[in-house]
C-alpha cells in the first residue's frame, strides 16, 4: 500500500547514484588504460585523459538542443502555452487505464495539477530560514540534515585527499606507477 509510491520514488535516485558510481569505475579503468600510452613528450597521456572532459561537456551542450524546458518552471514564468506544449510532447501518449479520465487527456490533467499547485505555493506565505531557526522542532530537523550530510561527505567522499596521501606514501616506497593506477581502479582510492 504505502510502499508503492516509495518504490516509484526511488527509481530516479537509484539511476543517478548508479550512474555516478559506474562513471567513477569507468574513469579509473580509463586511467589505467591511458597509463600505458608511451610518448616521448610524456604529456600526451594526461593531456588526453583530462581533455576528454571536453567531450563530456560537448555532449551535454549538443544534447541540450533537443531537451525541453521544465514545464513547472514555464508555469511559474506564466508561459502556459509553452508548458502545455512540452507536457503534451512528454506525456501525450500516457495512458492511465485505472483512472477516471473524464474525457480529458493525461497531460492536460497534469498541467491543471501543476498550475493549481504553483498557485497554492504563491498564495501561501513562504517558509523562510529565520522561521525555521525560530521553531525548535524545525531547528532540530535542520540540524539532523546538516549533521547527516556533513558526516556522510567527511567519511565517504573526498577520494583525492586519500589518494594524495596514498600516492605520497607509495612514491616513497618506490612502487611502479602501473601498480598504483591498477590499485586505484580496483579500490577507487
Amino acid at each position: 500500500m504505502s510502499i508503492a509510491p516509495l518504490v516509484e520514488c526511488s527509481t530516479d535516485i537509484v539511476s543517478s547514484s548508479i550512474n555516478i558510481n559506474a562513471s567513477y569505475c569507468l574513469t579509473e579503468w580509463m586511467g589505467l588504460g591511458f597509463s600505458y600510452i608511451e610518448g616521448s613528450a610524456g604529456g600526451l597521456k594526461w593531456r588526453l585523459f583530462i581533455g576528454l572532459q571536453l567531450l563530456c561537456a560537448a555532449i551535454m551542450l549538443a544534447g541540450s538542443i533537443w531537451m525541453p524546458e521544465s514545464p513547472r518552471w514555464l508555469v511559474v514564468q506564466k508561459r502556459h502555452d509553452e508548458a502545455l506544449a512540452v507536457l503534451s510532447k512528454l506525456h501525450g501518449t500516457q495512458v492511465h487505464e485505472n483512472e477516471d479520465t473524464e474525457g480529458m487527456p493525461f497531460y492536460r490533467r497534469e498541467y491543471e495539477q501543476i498550475e493549481a499547485q504553483i498557485r497554492l505555493e504563491q498564495e501561501t506565505p513562504r517558509f523562510g530560514l529565520i522561521s525555521i531557526l525560530k521553531r525548535p522542532s524545525y531547528r532540530k530537523r535542520l540540524f539532523i540534515i546538516l549533521f547527516f550530510f556533513c558526516f556522510q561527505q567527511l567519511t565517504v567522499s573526498q577520494p583525492e585527499t586519500r589518494q594524495a596521501k596514498s600516492t605520497t606514501i607509495l612514491t616513497r616506497c618506490r612502487q611502479s606507477s602501473h601498480y598504483r593506477t591498477t590499485k586505484s581502479s580496483f579500490t577507487g582510492l
Binding site: E28, Q53, C56, M60, P159
Partner: peptide, 24 residues
C-alpha cells in the same frame, strides 16, 4: 540526458584520483 549529468560529474571528479598516479 539528465542522468548523463551524473556521469559528467563522475568523470570530472574521478579523473584526478587516477591522474596523480602518473609520474609524468
Amino acid at each position: 540526458y539528465c542522468s548523463f549529468g551524473a556521469f559528467f560529474y563522475g568523470y570530472d571528479s574521478g579523473l584526478t584520483t587516477s591522474i596523480i598516479g602518473y609520474p609524468e
